[in-house]
Design a binder for these strands. Structure first.
Lengths: 334, 334
DNA sequence: CTGTTAGCGCCTTCAA
DNA sequence: TTGAAGGCGCTAACAG
């Protein structure tokens, strides 16, 4: 059926070894035989089997890309897709393959994600979209398998992470609002089970304190990262605190929901309430008014995660926590 | 290093063969030895190697997921992510692995996508995000490797496809606009290199003709599926044809750009110009006014593609063209 | 420069 | 019910 190295050897009148050498760029093959071999291989349409190669080399040159619960995170799609693109491009460039792994699969098969990776001899794994309270967290943290988490601040012997510097992102954002004269600034955070939420809250608190402003618990609401959550939270915030002049949201989707709510209440953005989001999704540029936001380098996060993992794999580097700088994108809403 | 079947056999005091049988659910192993083997395997933390298994069984149980040009298609991310989720869930359920393949990788490595798949012994491939004028199209169509395209209407011995019935989607959409009393209906289509554009155009034309309305070339503009493209196209349309009372867009992003443009021109949606989009992206629900649109079943497309491929692989079914019905989602913009 | 030999980890006849 | 032997396609010493 499939043509093997043996077929090529036979056709070219050489041994299997020689064919192998010719294909792996060894120098100790005469130009002539090499040329002949390549030509025969071409005519036979021979492609070396990565499977056999992986077996004998004891390395698959492939890593897992674990996306926790594919469908659970509608608002995060944009975010993850760009990260995936970064991971993929970098890994592909280095000749590594990517196998999709998901917790849903593992769960329904009653197999741990580690077993999944081990069976496939994946050399490492990049984990994204996982919540801090996910039962798999523990497993990721304790596994011997090299791994890098995206927005998952766990650090261990074999596990590093990449995330945006969310403390500073939030801090810069709130600081900007303060610089615009705002004093009563609400904060709609994401759910507490997301690592990023913890950091963004601290950033908000820090900026407020640095400006000598009181941090009122009432001004902070936990929501769900999505449009409807932003809307609900905003209504609550504005009804209870009419003195509020600005709201900072932990996601653009919530900010968009917030703007909608504010406008429905007959108020103006940014005239009555200034709005600042987080994420810099494409659509922020196309809502009215255009959304100001804290931008994350999504693609770069993927690249950084891939780089860290490869560093561990190829050069035995220690895993670490890599923080990427956020940046402020000021448009019309604040 | 890694524990193999041999280690288990030795520890359990049986032959490799018996361990193999125990693990693959054969009946001809006594309950007692089987239990012992499983127990030893557990204590040794043994996981059978899929690599070795693939080699001897001559099948990898894994397929490629080819995403043409990861970064090129910002507006399509939402769309693809859901499709991927569908593909993944279905395939994982059937015990098949997914390896990411991209044309960019192949291009930079000067290797055809077919070679990429062959080297990895992928059993089939699902292709998405590809344009009709992509040089790889030919290759996909002619390859012997079983494949299924998403929104890629090529049919051959080994290649089927899944897409939404775009002719009817557009037809239904335009028909709805007509039922609302509109007669001068513009159409902002996507670029002509997308398969879906051809169909949506036909749907538009059909609906107009069925209603006895003239199809004017001037009312049709090709754009880029994105927000800015929709904005530009709309300005052009409205300036040249002030009699227009409704515009149909081949994507929600373009529709959102269009609404923005209309509103900037001091007109009202849907009062002055009714707007209808295509895709049903999440955000359509959160723009003002809320966007009416033609919805595609994204996740289901992924599932259907996976099913078709598995049918070809497992049951030698013929590939075909599967059209999924679209549905009209009427909100506020029309 | 080239071939021989011995596996990589697993499955599958064929015997016992 | 079990084991021995051969082989999947490829690489890597070790000799020539």
């Amino acid at each position: 059926m499939t043509v093997t190295i043996r077929d090529v050897a036979r056709q070219a009148g050489v041994s299997i070894t020689t064919v192998s050498r010719a294909f792996n760029g060894y120098q100790d093959v005469s130009e002539e035989t090499k040329k002949k071999i390549l030509q025969v291989a071409e005519s036979l349409n021979y492609r070396p089997s990565r499977v056999a190669r992986s077996l004998v080399l004891q390395q698959t040159q492939s890593v897992g890309l674990m996306i926790s619960d594919f469908n659970v995170n509608p608002g995060g799609h944009h975010f993850l897709f760009d990260v995936i693109a970064g991971v993929h491009d970098r890994l592909a460039y280095l000749g590594y393959d990517i196998t999709l792994v998901s917790t849903t699969t593992a769960r329904q098969r009653l197999i741990s994600y580690i077993d999944f990776c081990t069976e496939r001899r994946l050399e490492g794994v990049i984990v994204m979209g996982m919540r801090l309270d996910d039962p798999y967290m523990q497993e990721v943290a304790e596994a011997k398998l090299p791994s890098v988490g995206i927005d998952l601040p766990i650090l261990s012997r074999y596990c590093g992470y990449v995330m945006t510097d969310n403390v500073n992102g939030a801090r810069q954002g709130v600081r900007y609002l303060i610089s615009q004269g705002h004093r009563s600034i609400g904060f709609v955070n994401g759910h507490a089970q997301a690592a990023v939420s913890v950091d963004r809250l601290r950033g908000y608190q820090t900026a407020m304190q640095e400006a000598g402003l009181e941090v009122k618990e009432d001004w902070i609401i936990h929501s769900n990262f999505l449009v409807d959550g932003g809307e609900t939270a905003t209504r609550q915030l504005l009804q209870n605190h009419p003195e509020m002049t600005a709201i900072f949201y932990a996601s653009d989707l919530m900010a968009i929901g917030g703007m909608r709510c504010i406008q429905r209440m007959g108020k103006k953005v940014p005239g009555d309430i200034a709005v600042l989001g987080y994420d810099n999704i494409d659509l922020g540029e196309w809502v009215t008014p255009m959304l100001s936001t804290v931008a994350q380098k999504r693609y770069e996060m993927g690249v950084a995660a891939a780089d860290m993992l490869m560093g561990m794999l190829l050069r035995q580097e220690e895993p670490g926590g890599r923080l990427l700088p956020p940046s402020l994108v000021i448009r019309e809403s604040s």
